[in-house]
Amino acid sequence: MSKQPMKREETLGGTIVHGLPFPAELTPEALNWLRQMLPIRIEQDYAITYLHSYGQDSPWFAGLTNKVLLGNREPETGYTYATPRGHGMYDGGETEWVELPTEGRVHAFTVCHFGSEEFLPETPFVLALIEFEGADTLLLTRLLGLDPDAASLDWIGMPVQAKFLRNAKLKPTDVYFTPA
């Protein structure tokens, strides 16, 4: 027999109410009684569409739509970033674009069984930081093709391969990785 929930899920929403209980006459006693009232809680909606600019990092997203993984390099030091960065942490100068390999290794990972509200429907999913030959920093990405119920430290060091969405969404999830 399957396990049945013992508690109903709580949600917002409810009944539209007109008027609240309140003393009919504002006697001193009634005014004093107001301090014993429980708080009124209302729902306030808040939604906004941002016109978010990727600014100097835009070519990285354009690269993904063309199945190319880009990184940035400091011309002076050769220090290479696997996540885009317009100016170098060490030489302070403008970085140049370089092509990264599409193969790498898992540096660290987790299986998310919960998440931000926006991503809850996608759980469980695997997040991973990927290291690349020739790059000094990592890339945060989704890792597919692994059983989320079989998480293992053996996944660290695993060779992985970049995959690109055919229909790019201009999001960092246009690239994801699978075991090579």
Binding site: T83, C112, G115, L127
Partner: peptide
């Protein structure tokens, strides 16, 4: 919010 959050980072 360009690189971490949209991947499902929390």
């Amino acid at each position: 919010v360009s690189f971490d959050y949209p991947v499902g980072g929390f």
